[in-house]
Design a binder for these strands. Structure first.
Length: 266
DNA sequence: ATGCCGTATGATATACGA
């Protein structure tokens, strides 16, 4: 039995926010650091900076300008790296690997654009199709003994307490009923356990993203919980702690997402 | 809901984020 600290963070460009990454790593010392929206091609990834922070192992799957996911491990070797593509689109949104006795999946789900209507908004259609394809894939791989951890910016805030105002956001992409239905089906595909809500009760508001546009993000607190950590039932008894590290949203030159941290016995 | 902010790029405006 080993205690793993797993962090997931949409950094909104790893090169632009490396100071914040370093500060977070010093503060929380995660064993596994999973990043989304790295926004850099693999050849340009600043691996040396992560190595200096103590991460001996890495798996990166990036592209120029957009998207991009990466996994860093302090001690445990990263093996069986898979860079998966969905919806027949050549983008970098899903990195799979084996590390520390688990199968880890790091996702950056499409944001979905502005209008929550598949007829007029191709981005919204892509988002729903992405979740459907991933759901079907996990359903086919379901086994009772699977030790999977799924993290990432899933771009859906499923619960009423995952948004600052449930009623006002029902027609806003990220909290529409059809997106929540797709996420619920995804979660049911492997009886995934929401590790954060296993610790923080669902009646307690919890957000991981706050828009840059608010003058005072903490005072307005118009946030959404878009970033998630799920585990399969075989790992659920090992969930020890979970939190959103919202200090990082208040640092100079922040990402608009805060890291989510889960302590898991594996 | 907007805000009007922040990221990126053969940039000096535009696409994207959600």
């Amino acid at each position: 039995m080993a205690r793993l600290r797993i962090a997931t963070w949409n950094v909104n460009s790893v090169r632009s926010h490396m100071d914040a990454v370093e500060r977070f790593v010093q503060a929380e010392a995660p064993d596994l650091l999973c990043l989304q929206e790295t926004k850099v091609a693999d050849e340009q990834f600043p691996l040396a900076d992560l190595r200096k922070m103590g991460f001996a192992h890495h798996a990166i799957f990036g592209q120029k300008s957009y998207h991009g996911v990466a996994v860093f491990s302090r001690e445990a070797a990263i093996e069986k790296i898979e860079k998966r593509r969905w919806c027949e689109i050549e983008d970098a949104r899903h990195l799979q690997c084996r590390v520390a006795g688990i199968e880890l999946h790091n996702f950056y789900v499409p944001a979905g654009g502005d209008v929550p209507d598949v007829e007029v908004n191709d981005k919204f259609a892509h988002k729903l199709r992405f979740m459907t394809e991933v759901t079907d894939w996990f359903r086919r791989r379901k086994r009772k003994t699977n030790r999977f951890v799924l993290v990432g910016d899933l771009n859906v805030a499923p619960l009423e307490s995952d948004v600052w105002n449930h009623k006002q956001l029902l027609k806003v992409v990220s909290h529409t009923p059809i997106e929540v239905e797709h996420m619920d089906r995804w979660q049911a595909s492997h009886d995934w356990v929401d590790a954060v809500r296993a610790i923080v009760p669902a009646d307690q508001p919890l957000y991981s993203w706050w828009s840059y546009r608010a003058r005072d993000w903490r005072a307005a607190n118009r946030g959404r919980r878009l970033d998630h950590v799920w585990v399969t039932p075989a790992l659920a008894d090992g969930i020890r702690d979970a939190r959103v590290f919202d200090d990082a949203r208040g640092w100079p030159k922040p990402s608009d997402h805060a890291p989510v941290v889960v302590d898991l016995d594996v």
